[in-house]
């Protein structure tokens, strides 16, 4: 299922985030995957997902400009594949 701006998402409870100069490293203790969050804004978004009903609302709250939203949405889609974030 493709992610849309209206999807609700949250960070998996099995994931730890570690700040790094480029953004953060995300590690999933269950599937042992290590994922790079390659921008500090992406880190802010991922951390705030569960505070908002939709991805669009998260983007609003984090001040993600419209032109950046498609690439951020694609990045989030990838994070669902590695189970770093969940839909719902």
């Amino acid at each position: 299922m493709a992610l849309t701006l209206q999807s609700a998402c949250s960070l998996s409870p099995q994931v730890a985030l570690r700040p790094e100069p480029f953004g953060a490293l995300a590690y999933h203790y269950g599937n042992r995957r290590l994922v790079f969050l390659k921008h500090p804004d992406m880190v802010t978004v991922v951390k705030s997902l569960s505070d908002h009903p939709t991805i669009a609302a998260t983007f609003d709250a984090c001040g993600i400009a419209d032109e950046r939203r498609p690439s951020f949405l694609a990045a989030l889609e990838n994070l669902t594949k590695s189970e770093i974030i969940h839909v719902g």
């Binding site: 570690r18 700040p19 790094e20 100069p21 480029f22 490293l25």
Partner: peptide
């Protein structure tokens, strides 16, 4: 190149 410059841990 970021990795080459090293990480905090």
């Amino acid at each position: 190149s970021q990795l080459k410059r090293g990480l905090d841990a």
